[in-house]
């Protein structure tokens, strides 16, 4: 369990270092622009359309964001070959997977913490 925690902490740092949040921020910007533009096409329902569009796209984006983030965590480790060094230590594959998964969850839950953005700038 301890090993999984160590792995998760490195995964958190890796995801933040790789600037995965840039993707999220660009999505927010794009969705905002699109919703305003699409809102112009309706009469009287501009706010509703903006909210619906933003919620709908956020739903899809969160799923895609999780999938790609998860893939990149493993893919990078495999591509670099650092996985062989890690698994040559007495670390079970379950701990490795659990650690990576936990790291990803922590990063995704991160924005809900009130001090999160100040912490992010420190790294």
């Amino acid at each position: 369990m301890k090993q999984a925690l160590h792995i998760s902490w490195i995964a958190v740092r890796e995801l933040i270092y790789e600037r995965v949040f840039h993707l999220l921020f660009s999505f927010v910007g794009l969705a905002l622009i699109l919703s305003i533009l699409l809102g112009q096409l309706t009469y009287g329902e501009q706010t509703k359309l903006t909210i619906d569009f933003m919620l709908g796209s956020a739903h899809i984006a969160v799923i895609l964001f999780s999938i790609f983030m998860g893939i990149s965590l493993f893919q990078r480790e495999l591509q670099m070959g650092s996985i062989s060094m890690l698994l040559s230590k007495p670390v079970s594959r379950t701990s490795f997977l659990a650690g990576k998964y936990l790291g990803q969850i922590l990063v995704q839950l991160g924005p809900y913490h009130r001090n999160y953005y100040s912490k992010l700038t420190e790294i």
Binding site: Q3, L86, S88
Partner: peptide, 28 residues
Amino acid sequence: IGYLPENPRFQKFLTGKEILIYYGKLLG
């Protein structure tokens, strides 16, 4: 076992010391 793979690569955002601390902790 201590293993040195062919063409080893590490997480580039970590310092040399952090790498050793990380692997050391994995070894208990």
